[in-house]
Design a protein around this nucleic acid. Structure first.
Length: 522
RNA sequence: GCGCCUCUAGCUCAAUUGGCAGAGCAACGGACUCUUAAUCCGCAGGUUCUGGGUUCAAGUCCCAGGGGGCGCACCA
């Protein structure tokens, strides 16, 4: 994605992340108002004796005819000293300025990149005021497209206007901002001084756009379901709570859209998807933000094998569209995303990585002592399925580089998944692990309302036993199921983690525009 | 929640065994008609995160608190 000319400084590859640019030990501070006077912005009590050009109200609109990217596309290969005779109007932020006396150069940044401004005093109106512009000011410029004697493509400043002054000091024009706290809190500064940061969010936007298109091409219909849930459900997580005054009712911010989307499958919408925010009242870490974005989709008449094919094909498509290849790097390590991905059962993978052979027929005492041997705090309520899952997560999951589909989860830990067609006690559920992280969770959906009620009641028992992430009984969902949920494959993908993978960044805060932080004391 | 690290000018960073708190960029004043982080001269800029303590003397050492980063726990 060469929309931005990279300055010759340390790259932002993930290895440079912590070592060079994002060293967490570097200083912190906040951008404070510039105390310097602004000649273009006299204070209210400035007198008429102030020898500065009068501040004029910026225009309400401005109409650029082109941008830096289009200019580079059209005029990128001009020889030195070319005068094209073509006029251009561009707008953006002044990022650099080099005044030579009667000749000035500037660097303008717009959403497509940067381009040089060429301002000779003989042709640039209000030349002194132009030279007095501050870094960060928004300006609009009209003039001839040309190249300098050194061959730099430029727009000659033959007309210009101040669109908005900046009243705060520009960050270091070479180093930008490196303090992570400032980058997250003042993302508006980070985005225009850190090209790599913009690149990540542009990539994120493209991921979601491409995903929509891909799903729509396969006859999936996008829907929106409630974010306020009277009963939290569809995942195991603590919810945020809120209150509706007129109804005088407690409401929960959704932890997953799952149960509403499956109601729509009952309704006959055979292929639905939703891309939206979900909220989980859990810890914050480089891989967890309390609000994050999920893609969930449901496909009638499909099972979990179909979901595996869908995931690997979708991710392959995204990698090819965004990078032109499925051979990527993450954190300096190679990863091959081309379909098909490996499929292996949880127990096979435990055998590979922990060197132990266990399954649901293993005596529970043996499972308990194995788990304790791995340092897992075992609760008495844990059955064999939960113990196997705990052992998998402790010994195996983070060691999987993948991509790999981890299949056949124990029924005990999968309250919404359908029984495995061949293996009693297991479900047709899988997670895809890529770069040691869960990318998605999917299953052949449980369609039997009697079985679903039993599973929900079991969850309630676990909740009563102290598990505050266990689900509760959702009577309306059970009623919907009683009308008949067809065989259905369902899938949830964490968009943030997918973007982290595709953008090769190490923290979820690098892909969330405004991550959750403690309030700043200003 | 626990542990480790960190916080100095608007930004990026210095400050030796505890000994006058500094530089570059930005800003401000000046010089300069082909620069590319322009260059050169000058000026100004500080609650060293906060509050205690030790000391003749604290950015530096100690205690408590706050923000942030990372790890652990949690998060299927």
């Amino acid at each position: 994605m060469e929309w931005f000319p990279r300055p010759p400084k340390p790259s932002w590859s993930s290895s440079a992340f912590s070592a060079v640019r994002w060293d967490p030990t570097v200083g912190r501070s906040s951008l404070r108002p510039s105390t310097a006077g602004r000649p273009t912005m006299p204070s209210p009590d400035a007198t008429e004796s102030t020898p500065q050009p009068p501040y004029t109200q910026p225009p309400y609109t401005f109409e650029p005819t082109t941008d830096s990217g289009l200019l580079r596309e059209e005029f990128g290969e001009l020889a030195e000293g070319t005068e094209t005779g073509r006029q251009a109007t561009i707008a953006g932020r002044l990022m650099l300025r080099r005044v030579q006396g009667k000749l000035a150069f500037g660097t303008l940044q717009d959403s497509a990149g940067r381009i040089q401004l060429f301002a000779p005093s003989k042709e640039t109106p209000r030349f002194t005021a132009f030279c007095d512009l501050n870094l960060g000011d928004w300006i609009g410029v009209t003039g001839e497209v040309m190249t300098t004697r050194k061959g730099e493509l430029s727009v000659k400043v033959q007309e210009w206007t101040l669109l908005a002054p900046t009243r705060r000091s520009f960050p270091d024009k070479w180093h930008g901002i490196s303090d992570p706290d400032t980058r997250f809190r003042q993302r508006y500064v980070d985005l225009w001084v850190t090209p790599e940061s913009r690149e990540v969010f542009i990539l994120r936007s493209r991921v979601i756009s491409l995903m929509r298109r891909w799903l729509e091409d396969r006859n999936f219909m996008e829907v929106e379901t409630p974010i306020f849930h009277p009963i939290p459900g569809g995942a195991a997580a603590r919810p945020f709570t809120t209150h509706h005054n007129a109804l005088d009712q407690e409401l929960f911010l959704r932890i997953a859209p799952e149960l509403y989307l499956k109601r729509l499958t009952v309704a006959g919408l055979e292929r639905v998807f939703e891309i939206g925010r979900v909220f989980r009242n859990e810890g914050i870490s480089p891989r967890h933000n309390p609000e994050f974005t999920m893609l969930e989709l449901y496909q009638a008449y499909a099972d979990y094998s179909d979901m595996m094919e869908l995931v690997e094909n979708l991710v392959t498509f995204l990698a090819l569209e965004l990078h032109g290849t499925t051979s990527l790097q993450y954190g300096g390590r190679d990863i091959e995303l081309a379909a098909p991905w490996r499929r292996a059962t949880m127990e096979e993978l435990i055998a590979e990585h922990a060197g132990i052979s266990i399954d649901l027929s293993t005596p529970i005492d043996e499972l308990r002592s194995l788990a304790e041997g791995f340092g897992i705090p075992v609760k008495p309520s844990y059955g064999p399925g939960k113990l196997i899952l705990e052992i998998y997560e402790k010994t195996t999951e983070s060691a999987l580089w993948g991509p790999v589909f981890v299949t056949d989860y124990p029924k005990e830990v999968s309250p919404l998944s359908r029984d495995h067609r061949d293996k009693p006690g297991y479900t047709e559920r899988f997670e895809a692990i890529v770069a040691g992280r869960e990318l998605c969770n999917a299953f052949s959906e449980l369609i039997d309302p009697v079985e679903q009620r039993a599973r929900m009641e079991d969850q309630v028992a676990q909740r009563d036993a102290g598990d505050d992430e266990a689900m509760v009984v959702d009577e309306d969902y059970l009623r919907a199921m009683e009308y008949g949920l067809p065989p259905t494959g369902g899938l949830g993908i964490g968009i943030d983690r997918l973007v982290m993978l595709l953008a090769d960044v190490p923290s979820i805060r690098d892909v969330v525009l405004f991550p959750t932080l403690r309030p700043e004391q200003i």
